[in-house]
Design a protein around this nucleic acid. Structure first.
Lengths: 155, 155
DNA sequence: TCTAAACAAGACAAAAAAGTCAAGATTAAA
DNA sequence: TTTAATCTTGACTTTTTTGTCTTGTTTAGA
């Protein structure tokens, strides 16, 4: 259960766009330099985000990217689903059933899947309620959870 | 944000041990056949679980594996941490900081990390309260969440 | 029309994760 | 003491994920 780098980088690119919205579009080189992510990789992230309908692009000399809609209408759960898939979905069962056994015969499999489903619910409960706008708020860092120690660790 | 196969298979092996505890130890071939996981892979999972202190092994002709302690004293959060690491830990920052920028300069990075931390808390809240014993209970599947539809999907 | 700055897309390469293998060590029993 | 059943370990192969590259398209302006 790891965060993928696509989730980290993709969400950062999207947040950068959200933070710097001012009518004009932003370019890949600009985001690349500001966020310290390679030019090529930013392009890849934005491609995924565009295909997911979160950003829109314009080509040509003055081209670039803008959010497809206002930050308060972009739900973080949707963004992360597009970038990294879900913790648990129905295809997971087929991939890991192992041999010809089915859920009825391998009790472990089903107990475990009930757990995965419950974890997914817990994650969704957080992410479904959050929009990009919430992440932008200055106070978000310290909202109802004491996470200020993170600042110490990461500097 | 995906479950690793190590988490799926490892937890299933451990649950199998928990369900079949009756004084005697269980062997790799037995778990392999019952759970439909390859012999070699079961060996690998049990190695990790042993190094994490969740199971104990005995070599030799009547060797095998047993739980290191009673199921009610094995916390699922600990098991999953051993099998798959955490969603977010302090090392994540260094890996994804990108270029020489630090959190103070890339606001996206810190907003995103506060989110990861919050997700980790949500996951921990579920997993810290659960022991192997809870997963063994027949009723677990339907406990306080309606997940019976899963049985339909997965059969 | 030509050029420069930008996005687009698929192919390719590198890295990480997953799974397998082979040689060895241990134990109980014949 | 020999044998068979078992665990132990590190190395190896395969698969998946990540990141990069190359070629092409689009647009504005000189």
């Amino acid at each position: 259960m790891k965060l993928s780098s696509q989730e980290e980088y993709g969400l950062r690119c999207l947040l950068y766009l959200a933070r710097h919205e001012c009518g004009t579009s932003l370019t890949i080189p600009e985001i690349s330099q500001s966020e310290g992510i390679s030019h090529h990789n930013v392009g890849k992230m934005l491609r995924i985000l565009r295909q997911g309908g979160f950003v829109e692009s314009e080509r040509g000399q003055h081209g670039g990217y803008v959010l497809a809609r206002a930050p308060e209408h972009i739900v973080v759960a949707d963004v992360l689903n597009a970038l990294g898939g879900r913790l648990f979905d129905s295809s997971f069962c087929e991939q890991h059933s192992g041999a010809e056994e089915n859920c009825a015969h391998t009790l472990s499999a089903c107990s475990v899947r009930a757990l995965w489903s419950r974890l997914q619910d817990a994650v969704d409960a957080v992410l479904q309620e959050l929009t990009l706008r919430d992440l932008l708020r200055e106070g978000y860092l310290f909202k109802d959870k004491e996470v200020s120690h993170l600042l110490e660790i990461t500097h």
